[in-house]
């Protein structure tokens, strides 16, 4: 692993529930997460697996009817389970920053982007009123926006999707965050723009020396970006590994199936051969009982899968929640 720095965030048994009219739903169910400075951790999973809820829970942004509990939650030396909300607000945006899929909703539509950046600079006490505007332009240039002077005077809707995402990255990085959480920041963008945004994001993260928790459903991005990968299925971590281990020796049948179902751009089409697919659909979180949540779709399911599978360590840093590896 590249510079395995200090642990900046450590959460144990994170549980986020939502009270819905049809019952209590456990969107995130007992997640353990440890993030180190300088590392990129990708959180992968299909839609509804609890990726966004995890990110929002870590940011302290879950509102009722949602409810977050955690056995242990340390961030940058603070015990967040006991921290008052006012302190949390100070950390948020400054020491932890979040970037969302849709930059348009993260920006104020009726204010010029330069002014929005300048305001954040002032809030964080990083620039005086006089200086803020100049610094905002500088920042826009820094995140690769051409003609920053002019662009600072634009409204968000006048920018392209990629430019908007550059602006939100600039805003996120203002407080020199120790942790950046990016929730599918490139899903709405075209591939060529996506590459640029990924480059910018990792460049910023490296220069700040912060940890990056990158949420995505795209296993291609994971392969390019991640140091470590956490695979979520129906609210639970089913596998966690260094990126090399995950792609070379995936352990969980779900991970195996997922990797197999990504069509390979570089392999020729095999006519008459079906694409690898995982049968069935993700379970309804309101209906999951005990036992492995993947067992209905699993080709290696067994009687014992009706009981809660244990988290098993295959090798250092490679953990799998599956009965296949029990008693080895």
């Amino acid at each position: 692993m590249r510079n395995a720095g200090d642990v900046v965030l450590s959460a144990r048994r994170l549980v986020t529930t939502f009270d819905t009219p049809s019952g209590r739903l456990r969107a995130v169910d007992g997640l353990d997460l440890h993030l180190r400075l300088g590392e990129v951790v990708c959180l992968v999973g299909e839609s509804g697996s609890g990726k966004s809820v995890t990110g929002l829970s870590l940011m302290g942004l879950i509102d009722p009817p949602g409810h977050v509990t955690c056995d242990e939650f340390w961030f940058d030396g603070h015990d967040l389970t006991t921290l008052p909300e006012s302190e949390m607000e100070r950390l948020r945006g400054r020491r932890i920053a979040m970037i969302f899929q849709e930059p348009l909703s993260a920006l104020n539509p009726s204010r010029r982007v330069g002014d929005q950046i300048a305001e954040v600079l002032r809030i964080h006490g990083l620039a005086s009123r006089a200086e803020a505007t100049r610094r905002a332009v500088e920042l826009l240039g820094r995140v690769g926006i051409d003609d920053a002077q002019l662009r600072a005077r634009s409204y968000p809707h006048q920018l392209s999707g990629g430019q908007r995402q550059r602006v939100t990255i600039a805003i996120a990085c203002i407080g020199s965050p120790r942790l950046i959480i990016a929730d599918e920041p490139t899903t709405a963008l075209d591939v060529t723009v996506q590459t640029q945004i990924l480059d910018l994001l990792t460049e910023m993260q490296t220069s700040l020396g912060s940890a990056l928790l990158f949420i995505t459903h795209d296993l291609g991005i994971v392969a390019e970006l991640a140091d470590r990968v956490v695979v979520l299925y129906a609210g639970q971590v089913v596998e966690e590994a260094a990126v090399e281990d995950l792609y070379r020796t995936p352990g969980h049948p779900y991970t195996v199936g997922l990797l197999a179902s990504v069509p390979d751009v570089d392999a020729p089409r095999k006519r008459g051969v079906a694409l690898a697919a995982i049968p069935g659909t993700v379970p309804n979180l309101l209906e999951v009982g005990t036992g492995c949540r993947f067992r209905e779709r699993c080709d290696r399911a067994h009687d014992r899968c009706g009981a809660e599978p244990p988290m098993i360590t295959l090798s250092e840093g490679h953990r799998v929640r599956c009965w296949l590896y029990a008693g080895r």
Binding site: R2, V191, T192, D199, S207, D218, G220, A223, E224, V262
Partner: peptide, 23 residues
Amino acid sequence: HAVPRATLGRRHRDGVVARTSMS
């Protein structure tokens, strides 16, 4: 070229090199 490949290959290592040099 822009399509992210779901395999560990050249580009991943390129990426790491690129990122380290950017630090």
